[in-house]
């Protein structure tokens, strides 16, 4: 039984029309149908957060959605974070604070954090930690990531977090 559906999805501003099987995970669709391999897959059971993308502006785990559910919706992946070639302040901050090592979990952190840093000019460290509590990183021990978040907020809001 192959249940096929034709969907139109806007990813990073480009609209794609594809025919997909109903069971195809959104993460697989983004990576293997659209070739946007910056979104990574770490657990496929919704714990590690590596596959986080923005779905209509909100961070979600793309391994816990079917591609067919994205029909008519807008998605942003890490490739869309800095389309002009310049890095987003969040990416710059990660670079400056050494907030990544192997870099596998990084796109998930960035997509989780994008709305957070844009809407939180002055978070506490506890709020930052909670914001990333749904993303696992095995390399950094999180400390430099937290420093990067503070730095990104400074860059975006010109404040001291």
């Amino acid at each position: 039984m192959t249940d096929l559906h034709t969907i139109r999805v806007t990813v990073n501003g480009t609209t794609y029309e594809r025919t997909v099987e109903a069971r195809m995970l959104l993460s697989d669709f983004i990576r293997h149908e659209l070739g946007l391999t910056g979104t990574h897959v770490g657990c496929e059971h919704g714990v590690c957060g590596a596959c986080t993308v923005l779905f209509d502006g909100q961070p979600v785990r793309s391994c816990l959605m079917f591609a067919v559910q994205a029909d008519g919706h807008e998605i942003m992946t890490v490739e869309g974070l800095a389309p002009e070639g310049e890095m987003h302040p969040l990416q710059e901050a990660f670079h400056e604070a050494h907030a990544l090592q192997c870099g596998f979990c990084t796109p998930g952190f960035l997509m989780t954090l994008k709305p957070f840093v844009e809407t939180h000019p002055n978070p506490t460290e506890e709020e930052i930690r909670k914001a990333i509590s749904g993303n696992l990183c095995r390399c950094t021990g999180y400390q430099h990531i937290i420093e990067a978040v503070k730095l990104a907020i400074k860059k975006i809001h010109h404040t001291d977090a």
């Binding site: 910056g38 974070l81 990660f94 796109p107």
Partner: peptide, 9 residues
């Protein structure tokens, strides 16, 4: 190595 890792490339 950061730029390619940070931009999904």
């Amino acid at each position: 190595e950061d730029p390619v890792l940070l931009t999904g490339q």
